[in-house]
Design a protein around this nucleic acid. Structure first.
Length: 399
DNA sequence: CGTACCCTACACCGGTCCTA
DNA sequence: TAGGACCGGTGTAGGGTACG
């Protein structure tokens, strides 16, 4: 991991001051810091450049969809800000409530049932993956785009007012194309994306303290929401309810039919996979699990680099939702490389794994060009580093 | 110790600039 | 030229503060 925490005292106090002492009319500032924290964790190798990092507002807006999802239940709104009396009536608590509620309604319509609090996380993962979001209706995609636009506008508020005065901690977001040379973008950033610039030291602080930042954000968010007057005074909400809503994560294993089909085709063609944990051979006719290397319960990522055929018995009984120890990880890496190389031999899986890797890891091209690794070697290295970093920084159980 | 006024942080609105 | 991005001004709730 990075520098010792003592070097980050100044930056960490910036974070805790915003959370604890900045005045707040809405939960925006808490949501902003939580989203930055999640972005830092989800782009695991960007820090290696030691430069300022550009984060598209779009990426932050995605997290906001997930965080605010439980609060925009059409039948049970939970207010996230004060409502002022205007000439036109009571204004809304948060600028994007209408847009996000409408997205949630469209979602409930498409799945045919009421939505769970964690569906926001589920949804944003679906939208990130090109091959998945094409399965949704144009009406739904349009609501999604409208919500993202509304959220990006709202995001400017806490960015502007974080810390004393205006624009004191963060600069006004501008498009990536006018930031060239002043740092590096997170993977997947487009020239036209309006970006928040996070300075290199602050990025490192978030990396070192991600666990603490998340815990503090959720704690403050619970207290903030509990304090706000809600519509239904007879059914007061307490911090326990809010805590549950804020920390609910998708635990249902999504059907990975598309991925399994293509892996089955490879097996039929005679390709052999090796379970990275037990080194058991997986060939046609041998049953396997499509293991999430990073467990769903830790970070729900269904990208192809995170999926590897593995020994079903070991996956279900030994690994479960834990992360590998560093020794186990080291011996698994060659087999992961082998798995990724297998993916490349399928036309469809090859384009998907390239897309998924490019959207997540920044250092793969450099590992290939400068360290002369193959694509599969580079990917297994960055994935291995990612698993290791998360296990250490979150102090997770390992096997 | 109460109250009037000020400040903050946001929503909202209307005008202007830009571009397809 | 229309529609969207952009910009700055205004109104408001509630906390802070000075003052009687």
């Amino acid at each position: 991991m990075g520098k010792p925490m003592s070097l980050n005292v100044a930056n960490s106090s910036v974070i805790s001051t915003i959370l604890r002492h900045d005045t707040k009319v809405t939960s925006y500032k808490i949501a902003l810091l939580r989203a930055i924290n999640d972005v830092v964790v989800s782009f695991p190798d960007v820090y290696t450049y030691h430069q300022n990092v550009f984060v598209p507002l779009r990426a932050l807006a995605d997290y906001w969809i997930a965080y605010y999802w439980p609060f925009v239940d059409p039948h049970w709104p939970i207010y996230q800000g004060r409502r002022s009396l205007r000439a036109s009536g009571l204004n809304s608590d948060i600028a994007f409530r209408q847009a996000l509620t409408s997205l949630r309604l469209e979602w409930e319509y498409s799945i045919g049932t009421a939505s769970k609090p964690s569906d926001g996380f589920f949804l944003i993962n679906e939208m990130k993956i090109g091959r998945k979001n094409q399965l949704y209706s144009p009406a739904f995609l349009q609501k999604y785009q409208a919500a993202v636009v509304a959220l990006c506008d709202a995001l400017e508020m806490p960015i502007c007012y974080a810390g004393p005065g205006k624009w004191s901690i963060f600069a006004k977001p501008v498009k990536f194309k006018s930031l060239q040379g002043q740092g590096i973008p997170v993977p997947g950033t487009l020239l036209e994306d309006r970006c928040l610039v996070i300075n290199a030291e602050l990025w490192q602080t978030f990396r070192d303290m991600s666990l603490w930042v998340e815990a503090l954000c959720i704690h403050e968010w619970c207290l903030f929401t509990e304090r706000l007057p809600q519509e239904n005074q007879h059914q007061p909400i307490n911090r326990g309810d809010i805590y549950r809503l804020l920390t609910d994560r998708p635990d249902n294993r999504r059907p990975l039919t598309w991925e399994r089909n293509h892996i089955d085709i490879l097996l039929l063609e005679g390709t052999e996979f090796i379970c990275p944990w037990t080194e058991k051979s997986i060939t046609q006719g041998v049953s396997y699990h499509l293991d999430h290397l990073m467990p769903l319960s830790v970070y729900p990522m269904n990208e192809l680099w995170n999926l590897a055929p593995s020994d079903p018995h070991f996956n279900a009984h030994q690994k479960r939702d834990r992360l590998p120890s560093s020794q186990r990880l080291a011996s698994a890496l060659p087999h992961l490389t082998h798995t990724y190389a297998n993916y490349l031999t399928s036309l469809q899986l090859a384009s998907v794994i390239k897309e998924d890797v490019n959207g997540r890891f920044a250092t793969v091209p450099q590992l290939i060009n400068q360290a002369h690794l193959s694509f599969p070697q580079a990917v297994s290295q960055v994935v291995g580093d990612f698993l290791n970093d998360v296990a250490v920084s979150r102090n997770l159980a390992r096997f």
